[in-house]
Design a protein around this nucleic acid. Sequence first.
DNA 1: CGCCGGATTGATCAGTTTCAAGGCATGTGG
DNA 2: CCACATGCCTTGAAACTGATCAATCCGGCG
Lengths: 190, 190
Amino acid sequence: TSIYRANKEVFGESEPADFVFRIIRGVVRAYKLLSDGRRQITAFYFPGDVFGLEPTDHYSVTAEAVVTAHVMVCKRRQMLSVAAQNVGAAREIWSFTAQSLAHAESHLLLLGRKTALERIESFLLEMNERALVSGQLNLPMTRRDIADYLGLTLETVSRALAQLEEEGELQLDGPRKIMLRRSGDTLSLA
Amino acid sequence: TSIYRANKEVFGESEPADFVFRIIRGVVRAYKLLSDGRRQITAFYFPGDVFGLEPTDHYSVTAEAVVTAHVMVCKRRQMLSVAAQNVGAAREIWSFTAQSLAHAESHLLLLGRKTALERIESFLLEMNERALVSGQLNLPMTRRDIADYLGLTLETVSRALAQLEEEGELQLDGPRKIMLRRSGDTLSLA
DNA sequence: CGCCGGATTGATCAGTTTCAAGGCATGTGG
DNA sequence: CCACATGCCTTGAAACTGATCAATCCGGCG
């Protein structure tokens, strides 16, 4: 296990995929870039999550710590040899990739078809499952990270949160702490 | 192997995932819906492509034929039992899922960060690899399908194609046949 | 204290959507 | 054989959502 401070790169897109990672503590983001710097975050990883798992020889995204992250590191070759002998392990590896795929597919729907407000609502519900600390949503990432995850600008994110607060859907306690009011009611998933 | 006529459903989202499919001829689309009917197509499948491969018990998307499609069908349980005994097969199954994931990640970047014109360009390059018939791009899907794949409206798709034609990037020969002029030049990937 | 990154808020701008009309091909029934 | 309906596509004009540009605020820290 190794430690990455905030904004330190864990691995870069198209680097040789020699290791697989599992989060112990902290949060990691994975993203892709366009040549002019536009960024799309494909996922945030929380404690327990596995990332960097590739059947090909190169990573398909860049991974960076959002906040100080403790990460379990495993040699890819070692993991593959275990999988070659253990059917259950092989199946588990496949499942991790399939979970990532399922998440990506839902996110395609969000990016392709939801409005700014709907994106924020979906995001809050997702984070509510993962970053809940003593009944309060504790966001580890900046507005820019949220924006790059949701395909918006940081201003739009800020405004949407302000609007939801005004409507009484949530309460902001500083920019990083949020209390949701009626999770799953008006904040509809679909 | 079985045959599906245009617009016939192969399987529905959240149905039990009892079968795995491989395209022999024709084209299939996979998509997700919002409750109000907004649709996001996650992928088009062409001859040789595998779809409906899930480690969970239910499909995560709906699949429909775009045009008459000949499809090889395989019982999921049978495939799993082969994979349980054959390491190579298990690895191949994992690879299919990982390929879908890689495609989805690229598409997240497209939906989250590219302009309408860039989306169309990326789409044409993608189709140029897959639907090329005698040096000419042969689109099997409607403008609405393209729009729902790219997170746009069909009008925007139509206008973007018209603009690219005006700029001499391509030549339309009816709405479904396209000749690209300088693939990979101005039509930049990144 | 003053700086700096992050966040909020306001005003304007622009790309895309929406609404609407018309064209073109195909197919069907009189 | 032609009239007409239908589905798909194109094109135009107006409306709107979210982006851009800009100013200010806030909290932590050197």
